[in-house]
Design a protein around this nucleic acid. Structure first.
Lengths: 321, 321
DNA sequence: GCGGCTTGCTTAATCGTTTAACCTTAGGCG
DNA sequence: CGCCTAAGGTTAAACGATTAAGCAAGCCGC
């Protein structure tokens, strides 16, 4: 079947210990021997059996990833960067879905532990906290969240969105949050408010009440900032159906830089995160913990503004109807 | 540390062979013994060490999943159903990303194999084919694709979309495909054409040329069918910017039933797949192969129409400008 | 010339589980 | 009563890798 360590040993008439030592570069092995072992390993296409290795070392080089429910549309990019980062460090990523319910989330963690994961990375569902387990666990959420290891700077991102609108002269800004139960979204909204700089910024939570957006625009709102691109698309189409134009009648900025933002006309201005960076740092931190390091300090990665077509300078004197 | 099999054995003063046999229900063990073992296992919270088990049995109970690039927006649901189905059968899911390039795809497969996966499930990038490896491999693509095991009935789905429009009286239908390089999308378009039933169905591939959609509508097109919700959203917003109304001026139906379809106003009529069903069957088939079964025959799961607000009866006599 | 150090390799134990083969006891039966 | 069988265990050998400990040979210095 698949070539094993002892095949190399037999072919070279040495002990398997020597081969192992040679390949790992750990023990005292002659330079010559190392080369011969490596050559033979390549020749027969040797790849170490992870199970044997894991059993002996107690390390599976597998990281468990617990995903929030599918609803989160920026999960794919997140997952991708995490897998990529893990791969670069030689780790595999085992995934579990925590569908709905916080209790299932803990079960998912448990399953991953049972499979021998060396560490667990959790992107929690909004409003849940994860019970700490006995193996290294890291969370990607927000700085105030327990076990958090890295997060996007949602506060700064929110500020970025509103500051952009302020710079364009907007004085009456509507700020639309999806769910006030989400820590991330609350933080984004707080960031938005923090950049008000004298402008009138009113907040609406979609899970609490559904504002009549076209009406608000007719009452003088000149710009809308949402906490998600999906909501921005909803707003855009709703305004379109009501005969209002973006960005001529009202400016709009989204959040998350989803693909859909580039598809719609006009293209959506939005605030983006570097998922790659977050994934990389989360994995780096987690692996550090696995290797006996201390839990790294919270790491916050900044967001950036993506200027496209939905937010423009307010037309002079057009702010009062 | 973690309780192991031998802990149970010691506590009960029996051999670990007995414990193993009792837990698996395989050998000749007295009813009484089985119960005592199970009780003790629960008491100390025993969970078998997957590495030890895998090493001995040659089965890791891990399935490798190779994902296409992130672009595919229905991937999250797919991944979820696959993970769920695997979990139900006691399997873990190890993921690898095949970013871009077919070569990377094979490397991803190799990585998963090296990690000890018992089988590999691939959702290929459009236009790539995967090299068969030495372990059971299944593909979710289209019936004509090699190694394919299960797929959505894209042809029937396409037919469903156009038939729906035909039933509403539409005679001039524009059919919008994303990329003619994608087997899936070609199949959808073929399905659409097959349901023309005498109507005029013209096809445009977005990767080849960008049609002036508002112009086409003014020339008499009364309905548009796209091969993806994302494109439908693009069309919808483009029409909106041009002052045309959906569905009053033109009907629209998308594909994939993405979340964004429910966010936009009006809500998007579309054709949906049962990702759950596909995931379930793919995993079931793959596990059957792992257990020595033959490669199951291609399995095709039907799509369904999701009627929402963007496709309505054509207004009588409004079909000619 | 001999104890001690270094070098380079080998021996063998070990990780936790499974499972073929064996052993012991007891019951059935002619 | 003794033989055969079955039931219910146990022993021990794997699976494939790592690694502490050991050992032989060579070299050094005094």
């Amino acid at each position: 079947m698949k070539p094993k360590l002892s095949d190399i040993a037999r072919n070279l008439s040495v002990s398997s210990a020597t081969v192992s030592l040679a390949l790992s570069g750990k023990g005292r092995v002659s330079r010559d021997m190392v080369e011969r072992v490596e050559a033979e390993a390549r020749r027969i296409g040797y790849a170490p059996n992870q199970m044997g290795k894991a059993l002996r070392t107690g390390r599976s080089t597998i990281i468990g990833l617990v995903l929030p429910d599918v609803g989160n549309p920026l999960f794919p990019r997140m997952a991708r960067s995490i897998v990529q980062a893990a791969e670069d460090q030689g780790y595999g990523v085992l995934i579990a879905d925590s569908h709905s319910g916080a209790q299932t989330q803990d079960r998912a963690v448990q399953r991953l532990v049972d499979f021998g994961s060396d560490g667990i990375l959790v992107i929690p569902r909004k409003g849940t906290r994860i019970g700490s387990s006995d193996i290294p666990t890291a969370v990607i959420d927000a700085p105030t969240s327990p076990l958090n290891i890295v997060s996007a700077d949602h506060h700064q991102g929110g500020a970025l969105a509103v500051r952009h609108l302020r710079e364009q002269g907007h004085q009456k800004i509507l700020c639309l949050g999806g769910s006030s139960a989400s820590l991330v979204q609350r933080t984004r909204v707080e960031g938005m408010q923090s950049a008000a700089d004298g402008a009138e910024v009113t907040v609406h939570w979609m899970n609490e009440s559904t504002p009549d957006i076209p009406a608000l625009v007719r009452q003088g709102v000149t710009a809308i900032a949402t906490t998600s691109d999906l909501m921005a698309v909803q707003v855009l189409t709703e305004l379109g159906a009501a005969g209002l134009r973006v960005p001529q009648d009202v400016s709009l900025v989204g959040f998350d830089d989803l693909d859909v933002g580039q598809m719609i006309r006009p293209k959506l201005s939005t605030v983006g995160t570097s998922e790659t960076e977050i994934g990389r740092r989360a994995i780096a931190g987690l692996i550090a913990m696995i290797n006996g390091g201390e839990r790294p300090k919270d790491d916050v990665v900044p967001m950036h503004l993506v200027q496209r077509e939905t937010a423009i300078e307010i037309k002079p004197g057009g702010d009062e109807q």
